[in-house]
Write a protein that binds this DNA or RNA. Structure first.
Lengths: 164, 164
DNA sequence: ATAGATGCAAATATTTTGCCGCCAG
DNA sequence: CTGGCGGCAAAATATTTGCATCTAT
């Protein structure tokens, strides 16, 4: 049989290696894209992520579930998901170096707002943002498919600290 | 004497190596930051740029004026300008790889709008964008200092072509 | 005079690619 | 079965750093 040893994590986390439940798995399945053991794991990590992750974080979490996941496969799977528009790529204004961050593409775009001092990142949704994209589409006569907005500054806490 | 050979370009371009005319040069001069021969050249290139440039383009243009400019100095000067908020860093949605682009920070922020097929990049300014940033500052109680918005899609021309 | 800048080379960091054996469908 | 996929190592890119020397002020 296939999958002789699943290299499962010994922690008590929720593990659905064989099922096709996650949104990303469903999306790829629907497109007739081969679902390998490694892909399932990476997709699950992305689906379960409560926030944006960089490649090393994805790898780390994936290996906790299945130690046989290689970083190259993470890169290749990310490319695949990007091509299909299923994840968004961020760089958070290079707050922590030049690495990229990824998150599943939800139903609505949101803005990432980062504090340049403490590094806290918050998300922001606004009808204004939707209006703005519509305005661009209309003015330039183009079909807008991706957008990324990242805002940096100093949160109230950090402003207080630095004035002391 | 200093500067034995200025390594000037032989082309008939406007060259003001010794003067302190550009906006960036003035800005750094005002801050008591040392203006070396190399910095003057790089600042002039940035000031004269009609659009965003990547590091190699900056280097290339700088070396046409003064061949004694090293790429490391370009990186270091970019860092300096970033720290002082005098230039903006873009990556144009990684349209052409992961390199970064730089442009002088004008009086108003603008959005970069790129066609994912032909690569054309246009700029967009909008009161809505200013409102959006104000909304973020108010809602999160933070001081917004930088923002970057990049929008991708397909321009009318490219949409036409692909439907054929 | 001297703090700070530059050049050069080497080190890092990040991502991509070639090749071959393996596996999902 | 078979074409796509994953692992491994090596390459390609992009950027940063240590150190000796030079220079703007």
């Amino acid at each position: 049989m296939a999958v002789p040893s699943q290299h499962r994590a010994s922690t008590g986390e929720r593990i659905n290696t064989a099922e096709t439940t996650g949104k990303l798995q469903q999306a790829l399945g629907k497109r007739r894209i081969r679902l390998t053991r490694q892909r399932r794991v990476i997709l699950q990590v992305m689906d379960d992520a409560e926030q944006h992750l960089d490649v090393d974080q994805i790898l780390e979490r994936a290996q906790k579930i299945d130690s046989g996941v290689h970083v190259v496969t993470v890169y290749r799977t990310i490319d695949l998901l990007k091509k299909h528009g299923l994840i968004d790529e961020l760089d958070l204004l290079h707050l922590r170096g030049d690495r990229h961050y990824y998150e599943t593409h939800g139903p609505r775009d949101h803005i990432h707002v980062a504090c340049l001092r403490c590094g806290k990142v918050r998300e922001f949704e606004s009808g204004l943002y939707e209006q703005l994209k519509q305005q661009i589409a209309r003015d330039f006569d183009m079909k807008v498919t991706v957008s990324r907005t990242e805002v940096g500054g100093y949160c109230a806490e950090c402003l207080e600290k630095s004035s002391s």
